[in-house]
Computed example of a mutant assay.
Amino acid sequence: MMRTIEAYIAPPHSLQNWADPLFRVLTSLIFIIGGLGHFGEHQMMLDRMSESPWRDTIDQIGNPSWLLWLSGGIFFFFGMTLALGWMTRLSALLLLLTLVPITITIHFAPGHVGPLFKNIAIFGALFFLYCRGPGTYAIDNRTLSLGQQLHGK
């Protein structure tokens, strides 16, 4: 019976083709908007960092303001490349590696359960993109095809 239900509600193939770019774009939006927020709401975010129970750890890692600028730049730039499906695996990996310490130092705190689990869900999306690659409608696919043409493959 479950197979019948699954077969009945399966989307058409034409819709399935759009799942990859839609997944990349929707996942990337949190980084693009968040990265811009690191610049536009810089002082507010610094204030939040200073309230973190891990603020001493943040200070040991580096200057909080510089860390905020750096993470904002990574989020924005690699959020854009992820959306485009360009350097997809590298983008997903760098976003993941940037998000992990932020999650630990900012969201492992009382009252941050929602943002903590939001970030854990994002870890899953980034890990999926890192493992699977760009999927359909991605610049990576065009670059790969061009490289194969140049090398006669």
Rank of each mutant, 00 (worst) to 15 (best):
139 I>F: 03
145 S>M: 10
11 P>H: 05
129 L>W: 06
66 W>G: 09
46 L>I: 14
29 L>V: 11
68 L>I: 05
139 I>Y: 01
1 M>K: 09
5 I>F: 11
7 A>S: 14
146 L>P: 00
63 N>H: 09
146 L>A: 13
41 E>I: 06
81 T>P: 03
86 W>T: 03
97 L>M: 13
150 L>F: 14
81 T>N: 02
33 I>L: 15
32 I>G: 03
134 P>T: 06
152 G>T: 06
60 Q>L: 11
57 T>L: 12
60 Q>E: 05
9 I>W: 12
53 P>E: 05
111 G>I: 01
77 F>L: 15
136 T>M: 09
115 P>I: 08
107 H>Y: 05
98 T>H: 04
5 I>E: 01
72 G>K: 03
85 G>A: 03
49 M>V: 09
4 T>K: 12
71 S>K: 06
105 T>R: 00
121 A>P: 01
135 G>P: 08
47 D>Q: 15
140 D>R: 08
83 A>P: 02
97 L>S: 07
97 L>Y: 05
114 G>K: 09
9 I>F: 14
27 T>M: 07
100 V>W: 07
95 L>S: 08
106 I>G: 00
87 M>P: 00
84 L>T: 00
128 F>K: 10
109 A>H: 10
128 F>H: 15
44 M>N: 15
134 P>C: 05
105 T>E: 00
99 L>W: 06
152 G>H: 14
16 Q>K: 14
24 R>S: 08
77 F>S: 11
105 T>A: 06
98 T>M: 11
90 L>D: 00
92 A>Y: 02
144 L>W: 05
11 P>G: 03
43 Q>R: 15
1 M>A: 12
23 F>P: 00
76 F>W: 12
88 T>Y: 04
92 A>N: 02
41 E>F: 13
73 G>W: 03
91 S>Y: 02
72 G>Y: 01
55 R>H: 13
4 T>I: 02
140 D>I: 09
77 F>T: 13
95 L>K: 06
149 Q>S: 14
68 L>D: 10
11 P>M: 14
132 R>Y: 13
113 V>N: 09
119 N>W: 05
32 I>V: 15
52 S>F: 06
38 H>Q: 12
138 A>L: 06
23 F>W: 09
141 N>Q: 09
117 F>K: 07
136 T>P: 00
136 T>G: 05
36 L>D: 03
19 A>G: 07
89 R>A: 02
11 P>K: 11
147 G>M: 10
82 L>R: 01
113 V>F: 10
62 G>E: 02
33 I>Y: 11
45 M>I: 15
148 Q>M: 12
106 I>K: 02
53 P>V: 06
133 G>T: 04
134 P>S: 15
109 A>Y: 01
78 F>I: 06
140 D>K: 07
35 G>C: 08
2 M>S: 11
27 T>V: 12
135 G>Y: 08
106 I>S: 07
101 P>I: 04
73 G>K: 05
57 T>M: 12
41 E>H: 14
70 L>K: 03
112 H>K: 14
124 G>P: 11
